[in-house]
Computed example of a mutant assay.
Amino acid sequence: MSMETEIAASLEGSHDDGSSRVIKDVLAGTCGGIAQVLSGQPFDTTKVRLQSAPEGKYTGALDVVKKLMANEGFSGFYKGTLTPLIGVGACVSIQFGVNEFMKRMFTGRNIQAGMADTRLSSGQFYLSGAAAGIANGFLASPIEHIRIRLQTQTSVPLLYNGPIDCIKKMYVGSGFAGIFRGLNPTLIREGHGMGMYFLAFEALVKKDMSRNKIERKEIPGWRLCTYGAAAGYAMWFTCYPIDVIKSKLQTDALSKTSQQYSSAIDCAKKIYTTNGIRGFFRGFLPTILRAAPVNACTFYAFELAIRYMG
């Protein structure tokens, strides 16, 4: 085996052929996605209700929690969980699968260029994550739209009887485009957000391996959790306002004639007019509280699955 091949194999932590590696990346990403949903759904429900509620309905995150527990019980936090459990598993598998593919591609380019240090640069980590986010955004947008509609319904009888009924009513209200409402801000959030997400995690892993002279598989679990938490902060601190716009668009009226926002830009203008800069950070507290445990679980589950599959 040549030195270049040894370097590439070391970076990937595997000698598998390409197709086998992709399958393992996707399966491990699915494990990470399931861990993400189960650990993060209560935080996400709280965030979405704060983001999309009429002005004055809630005084803050704790008020949402108190009212939800009083009116709907603990199960209310897990409204709409089936859709993200299936969908987010698929989304995260795409994120990690594309990110790992892009990392291999950049590693190959670095080797072909004859670079003395073939390890990926910060820019390459960011571009790998951004590509993963954009690829995932087309699937994440309708999945999140359905989840948000289900999470925010509080009236009785319920407007939607489940994910399928929700899709039907969205289609009747605005056609196929209605299902993908909020796609553009989702792509922006996913592209930049995932770029920062994977950049933060991979940079910390790279530094750990270099500082301690160990392989990736030797990094202890508690440090992987710490790096995953940092990745979550890196993402949300840099892309949260666009997520607020997305949530506003996806909780707007179904019928085009009744919608409050004509576009993402129109939504941003109205948020600023009504609440100023603070309006772009509604629900930020539960999101940041969620970021550490959820992304720690996501990356830990992914890395453990990769190690288990070899």
Score class of each variant (00 low, 15 high):
265 I>K: 03
119 R>G: 09
23 I>P: 08
11 L>T: 13
143 I>Y: 09
221 G>P: 15
22 V>E: 08
99 N>K: 08
103 K>Q: 15
148 I>R: 14
171 Y>W: 02
223 R>C: 10
233 Y>Q: 04
49 R>P: 03
180 F>C: 02
112 Q>K: 07
120 L>F: 00
213 K>F: 06
237 F>T: 11
81 T>L: 15
108 G>K: 01
161 N>G: 13
131 A>S: 12
210 S>Q: 10
149 R>I: 07
200 A>M: 06
223 R>Q: 06
4 E>P: 08
214 I>P: 01
87 G>N: 08
240 Y>R: 08
263 S>Q: 03
222 W>Q: 06
13 G>C: 04
63 D>G: 05
71 N>S: 14
235 M>D: 11
130 A>S: 12
8 A>I: 14
59 T>K: 10
150 L>G: 02
69 M>V: 09
199 L>Y: 02
62 L>C: 09
165 D>L: 05
257 T>S: 12
207 K>A: 12
288 I>Q: 07
288 I>T: 08
267 C>N: 00
154 T>Q: 04
141 S>C: 13
225 C>R: 15
283 G>Y: 02
27 L>K: 00
91 C>L: 06
39 S>W: 10
162 G>C: 05
151 Q>N: 07
86 I>P: 07
132 A>T: 11
239 C>Y: 12
260 Q>E: 03
239 C>S: 15
18 G>S: 09
20 S>A: 10
179 I>R: 06
5 T>W: 02
25 D>C: 04
104 R>I: 01
134 I>W: 04
259 Q>A: 11
95 Q>W: 10
196 M>G: 15
8 A>M: 12
88 V>D: 13
219 I>R: 01
103 K>I: 11
225 C>G: 11
6 E>N: 12
160 Y>D: 10
204 L>S: 06
164 I>C: 07
218 E>F: 00
133 G>N: 03
99 N>L: 10
281 F>G: 08
176 F>H: 12
260 Q>M: 06
36 Q>D: 10
307 R>S: 11
290 R>N: 15
269 K>P: 09
88 V>M: 12
306 I>F: 05
15 H>V: 15
107 T>C: 07
31 C>M: 07
215 E>K: 13
302 F>Q: 09
119 R>L: 02
50 L>G: 08
140 A>M: 07
133 G>Y: 04
294 V>F: 03
63 D>N: 11
238 T>W: 04
287 T>S: 12
146 I>D: 05
207 K>S: 07
28 A>V: 00
60 G>W: 00
86 I>V: 14
236 W>T: 14
157 P>T: 01
45 T>Q: 04
